[in-house]
Amino acid sequence: MLEVDVKNMRQEDIAALIREADGEPLTLKSCMGQRYIGCGMKNVNLTLTGTPGNALGAYLDGGTIRVKGNAQDAVADTMNNGKMYIDGSAGDALGYAMRGGKIFIHGNAGYRAGVHMKAYGDIQPVIVIGGTAGSFLGEYLAGGTIIVLGLNREKEPITGFFCGNGMYSGRIYLRTDEKPVGLSEKLLMRKIDDEEKKSVIAPYIEEFSKEFREDYKKCMDGTFIVIEPNPKNSYKELYAAVS
């Protein structure tokens, strides 16, 4: 496997390295804030150490990116396909407008994870967050699945304020039995049964626990709630047409 120390490398040169590897496994060591790694690429097999910069894997269209550490802001912006495993935490705006592929975060996600993620046909994006998520999780969610496990948390809530505000499709699963603070009245919340747990979220959680060496049973343990849009509460009544 090819390994390169990229600490002092410019982002343009890193991009060239990745293109050269052409899908062969490539490890980029000691990343130091270089942005756009794997941006728009189709066929990557990357392992990163250090701290990769913003917009990691933006528009990613296939392949796998693994980060052994934290990632910064705007990870997987508008991601289309492929997989991303972050064995640490992610910054703000994770998976913005993501349309396909899967993201697994071992630690926490910052503010605005999964904003306006959307699904079309068979293309169903998924984000699994092992720790907690910041405010505005899944805001404007238009499709896909977000799962937050809240592992190893103490007093802090599993998500911040305004969870799922304005979502109109898709689902947010939280491993808790507490209603997120200030949940919008336009959303529905319910506890899921074992059947849904098994058929819908178990495969993703299994993949998560395997990747990050977490105990699967522990990850599945306890109550999960799901947040969905309330179909009865649309925004139509807000408008008065001027004839």
Binding site: F136, E139, Y140, F162, G166, Y235, L238
Partner: peptide
Amino acid sequence: VTNPSIDPLREP
């Protein structure tokens, strides 16, 4: 661009 507008139906 230089700062974000806000959707009042969904954000505080």
